Computed example of a mutant assay.
Amino acid sequence: MAIEWKLFADLAEYAGEKHVAVDVSAGDTVEDALEELLDEVPELEDRVLADGDLRSQINVLRNGTNVLVEEDGLETQLEGGDELALFPPVSGGA
């Protein structure tokens, strides 16, 4: 099955697009989908990972829910129709 990643802010710039579809199988996890994304768009790896681990300031959402806070982290299992998103740190405002 295909899962779509939405990329925001500079992550979309690194990838050259805002949406990237990756192939995953039943029972795969968010981590599996992230690995597929980084295989598909290796330009993202240095921005998303540090020493092989997800950078602490990167947020990963599954269907609008932060998997790192409200689900099983990167071990969250995927289901058909899921939509994933990566958000870099956001700052600014007045």
Rank of each mutant, 00 (worst) to 15 (best):
A9E: 11
T29N: 07
A33T: 08
L7R: 12
Q77P: 02
V24N: 00
Q57A: 05
N66E: 10
V41S: 03
L37Y: 06
L7V: 12
E36P: 03
L86V: 09
L68D: 04
S25E: 15
A94R: 08
G27K: 10
L86R: 09
V24K: 09
G64E: 11
S91T: 15
A15F: 13
E13I: 12
T29A: 00
V60Q: 10
V48K: 06
K18H: 07
P88F: 03
E43C: 01
G64D: 07
E31G: 15
A9L: 08
E40V: 11
L74V: 09
A21Y: 02
A2Y: 04
E40I: 01
L38Y: 04
A21T: 10
S91E: 09
E45R: 15
G52C: 07
V60K: 08
D32K: 13
E40W: 01
L68G: 03
D28S: 12
V90L: 14
G92R: 13
D10E: 12
L34Y: 10
D23Y: 04
K6G: 12
G16I: 10
D51S: 14
V48I: 15
T65I: 15
G80R: 06
D72T: 01
G73A: 01
A50G: 00
Q57H: 09
R55A: 03
A33W: 11
H19K: 15
L61Q: 03
S91Y: 05
A12I: 11
V90K: 13
D46R: 11
N66G: 04
D72L: 09
V41D: 05
T76H: 08
D82M: 07
A26F: 03
D53V: 07
V67C: 02
N63H: 07
R47V: 05
E75T: 07
E13R: 15
L86E: 09
S25Y: 02
Q57S: 09
I3V: 15
I3H: 07
D53L: 07
W5F: 15
A26N: 08
V69F: 00
V90Q: 05
L78A: 08
G52Y: 09
D23P: 10
A94G: 10
I58L: 11
G16Q: 13
H19M: 13
V24G: 00
N63G: 12
L54D: 08
A94W: 13
V22A: 03
V41M: 04
L37W: 06
A12K: 14
F87M: 12
F87R: 08
N66P: 10
L54I: 02
I58F: 00
G64L: 07
L44S: 04
K18Y: 01
I3A: 00
D23T: 14
D82Q: 11
L54H: 05
S91D: 11
G73R: 01
R62G: 00
E17W: 01
A50N: 11
G92K: 13
D39F: 01
V67G: 01
G80Y: 02
I3E: 00
I58K: 09
I58C: 03
D53W: 01
R62P: 13
L37M: 06
L68P: 06
A12E: 11
G64W: 03
P89L: 00
W5R: 04
E70A: 14
V30P: 11
A21R: 14
L61D: 04
E13Y: 02
D28H: 14
Y14L: 15
V69Y: 00
E35T: 10
M1I: 13
A12N: 08
L68Y: 03
E13L: 11
E83L: 12
V30F: 03
L68A: 02
N63W: 09
L84M: 04
A15W: 04
S56C: 00
